Amino acid sequence: MGDLTHFNEEGRAKMVDIGEKAETVRTAIAHSSIKVNEVIYDKITSNSMKKGDVLAVAQVAGIMASKKTSDIIPMCHPIMLTSVDISFEWKLTDSDHILQITATAKTKGSTGVEMEALTAASACALTVYDMCKAVDKGMIIGETYLIEKTGGKNGDFKRTE
């Protein structure tokens, strides 16, 4: 593991200087999920939720959130995203209806896009919750984590589980 670089000599928070870092193509893929009941699953998949197309709104919310990451995460640099893509997949069992969310962010720059991908995935899950809470407030937002990232001086990362 690398050293924590977000602290100055006094032990106080600082924004890392990326001025000397090389610009490279960087990607990050993040995951989140939300478990809903069968009624919500049916309403989302039939596009009959009163507030509108839940997945379309969640997708736009994720993209918008990724672009605002530096506004809400204090030490993140504002970056120029070259691409943000969100995909959804249902994982169904006899008792569970889980919406799997995958967010991919890309840039060409001096800092990574992990936080932008994680923010996008999180915002998608939160938006689904917001749009469906009138039906059931018992939804559960699941683990959110980085799947993989490429580019930068620290190299690539790929989750192995």
Rank of each mutant, 00 (worst) to 15 (best):
I34A: 03
A30N: 02
G2D: 10
D94E: 14
L81K: 03
S122K: 04
I101S: 07
I40L: 01
M139P: 14
Y129C: 04
M75N: 07
D85E: 15
M49F: 15
C132A: 09
D71H: 15
G155L: 02
F157G: 01
E38N: 14
W90C: 09
G19S: 11
G138S: 15
K158F: 04
H31L: 13
E38A: 10
L55I: 03
M131Y: 01
M131C: 06
H97M: 05
T111Y: 00
V84S: 06
I18T: 09
I101H: 11
M139G: 14
A56C: 02
A134S: 08
L81S: 05
S33I: 02
G112N: 05
L118N: 06
S122I: 02
A123H: 13
V25T: 15
I140W: 11
T144M: 14
A58Q: 04
V36T: 11
G52V: 09
G138C: 14
S122N: 10
A65C: 13
D85S: 15
L99G: 06
S87H: 10
D130L: 14
I40K: 07
G155S: 01
S87G: 07
V60R: 10
T69W: 01
F88P: 04
H6T: 09
D96T: 11
K43V: 03
C132Y: 09
E23Y: 11
A61Y: 07
K153H: 08
T93H: 03
M131R: 07
P74Q: 01
L92Y: 01
V135E: 11
Y145I: 09
Q59R: 08
H6M: 08
L4H: 10
I140Y: 12
A58D: 14
E10G: 08
L99M: 15
A58F: 01
M49T: 15
I147L: 14
T107N: 11
W90R: 13
